[in-house]
């Protein structure tokens, strides 16, 4: 058995992928972190406090892991889902009724709920340990933006099953946009934006119209939310997560007393 492992380890293929001996001694344990693309997110060594569960609660890591789960299950779900009035609801029901491992939808939905909770708890912990204080101020700001984007991801995904729960939650949620000051057609000050007696802001040109792509939640909205949910927001989130992690390293390292 061990000779087989030895054979694999010595093979050219293995050595071309992992260019260092197994991480059994101290030197190679450092080398593995430095040379592996995925691991080099980490520093070579960390403070004991930085990985103590009772101190960090691991909520940031859990959030990131949930993001990966959402990406994976989300891509899988996209293979069976068409964002049109005709098919959206039927496709989701088919996931439940006829698709093998339709549980992917459950994992996607519960993972999304869990992600909202863990991202809040992550913020809670970072606040309570005062880890936003200098030099980590700006990373906290990025974190708040990521929190908003997480909520938006969940919100845009809420519409996609196209059932009563979805459409009315989005109607209630997006109706607030009509009251945006200046930019909503029922918001204070929109009357000021007019040219020669013509209102620039009407129910067909305000913030809500931009969000929904129509005057009511309909097929255009479904399409918009689908693209936001699957493409636009995930790209921005991925970028910001990269910056967030990078700055954790640069701004004083993984959480620890400064």
């Amino acid at each position: 058995m061990s000779s087989i492992i030895e054979y694999i380890r010595k093979s050219q293929i293995w050595r071309s992928v992992f260019r260092h001996p197994a991480p059994y001694d101290r030197r190679n344990r450092a080398v593995v972190v430095l040379t592996n693309f995925f691991l080099h997110l980490h520093p070579v060594s960390v403070k004991k406090g930085g990985i103590a569960l009772s101190y960090t609660w691991c909520m940031g890591g859990v959030t990131f892991f949930l993001f990966l789960v959402e990406a994976l299950t989300g891509v899988l779900l996209m293979f069976y889902y068409r964002p049109t009035l005709e098919w959206a609801f039927t496709d989701i029901r088919a996931l439940r009724d006829v698709t093998t491992l339709g549980i992917m939808r459950e994992i996607h939905r519960w993972g999304a709920h869990a992600m909202v909770i863990t991202v809040w708890l992550h913020m809670y912990r970072v606040f309570l340990t005062g880890s936003y204080k200098p030099p980590r101020e700006f990373n906290w700001v990025i974190g708040v933006i990521l929190l908003v984007l997480t909520l938006l991801l969940s919100f845009t995904g809420y519409l996609l099953p196209w059932d009563q729960l979805a459409i009315w939650a989005i109607t209630v949620g997006s109706n607030m946009a009509r009251a945006t000051p200046f930019l909503g057609h029922e918001g204070p000050g929109f009357q000021l934006l007019n040219i020669g007696g013509y209102d620039l802001i009407t129910n067909a040109s305000d913030a809500r119209f931009l969000l929904l792509g129509a005057r009511t939640v309909g097929e255009e909205t479904l399409n918009r939310f689908y693209i936001m949910h699957c493409v636009a927001i995930p790209i921005v989130v991925s970028l910001l997560i990269a910056i967030h992690f990078w700055r954790v390293r640069k701004d004083g390292g993984i959480s620890q007393p400064l």
């Binding site: 931009l210 792509g213 129509a214 005057r215 255009e220 918009r224």
Partner: peptide, 12 residues
């Protein structure tokens, strides 16, 4: 981008 996303025609 904002202007592009503002449709000129709606089906009602």
């Amino acid at each position: 981008a904002a202007r592009f996303l503002m449709p000129n025609m709606v089906r009602e």
